[in-house]
Write a protein that binds this DNA or RNA. Sequence first.
DNA 1: GACATGGGTGTTACTTTATAACACCCAGTC
DNA 2: GACTGGGTGTTATAAAGTAACACCCATGTC
Lengths: 156, 156
Amino acid sequence: MSALHDHTHCIADALTRADALCAERGARLTALRRRVLELVWSSHRPRGAYAILEDLSQQDGKAAAPLTVYRALEFLVEQGLVHRIESLNAYVGCAAPGDVHSGQFLVCEACGDAAEIDDPGVGAAIDAAAAGRGFRVQRPTVEVRGLCKSCQEKPR
Amino acid sequence: MSALHDHTHCIADALTRADALCAERGARLTALRRRVLELVWSSHRPRGAYAILEDLSQQDGKAAAPLTVYRALEFLVEQGLVHRIESLNAYVGCAAPGDVHSGQFLVCEACGDAAEIDDPGVGAAIDAAAAGRGFRVQRPTVEVRGLCKSCQEKPR
DNA sequence: GACATGGGTGTTACTTTATAACACCCAGTC
DNA sequence: GACTGGGTGTTATAAAGTAACACCCATGTC
């Protein structure tokens, strides 16, 4: 994800889509959950639960407990609004909530951005590899570490 | 991994290959590191660092500190003798040390076994997807949750 | 309007996973 | 024998995640 983009638009867009999706499903996107979603979306970098907790405490003035954040994150993950990046113990906003997710990420070691992709080739290759071994896929996780385009181009 | 196989052979084989590889590379597979490797290989299920720590304490009688185990694991991972399963915060013996690793795992939700695969199709698909986005791959992580063949066949 | 219900939140305490800082030991080398 | 560097031990601490239980509040029902 380029550093040069109107990120306020990303946030607003994510919240709007979340509102619509939850309304459609009858899921309760409460004030707290919405706020946590907003904080997750504060960048395209995966954020840890405790970082979000700190934001909540500092920006909103209320000292929340870890569980508060974890419960909100659990809801958001269930609704497909947020993904958990296993290799970072962190959470990032979903780029395409509502669509089918396979959860593939390109995580840049330099800038920390996690770009979500949904590459049909990767999904198909995993399905084929699993099928060949009689394995029934439930939840594939693909997290590729490396360097994003803009970080490669930057002089270090 | 079928529950029915001669696992003592797996362990012995893993240790033999580790000895050979480390000798070849001039890496020091000390008694402690070798013991930790053996404990990682005690099954095909990924084991947490603290589980290994407990084994060390209970089976060997010496109360080791967490760092002792983490340092040994770090070495073993660097040498490619052990893989870390990110989504489980756990470690599992590498099925093919010495060969190129892409780190792909089929993790069974029922029995907990993590079968390492090195599917060229999956690797190629990831490379292609990354290349198409200008992303330079350093370390791909693929961890597929699901049900292994033998657990599907078992009546639950 | 009173009441029951259930999901969401708050609070406290705790567990699990991982690392930092520093001292010591031992093998190999000059 | 002294030097050197990697490996290990020790203590303390940080980071990530969960359990148990009480309370609150919106909703539906009578």
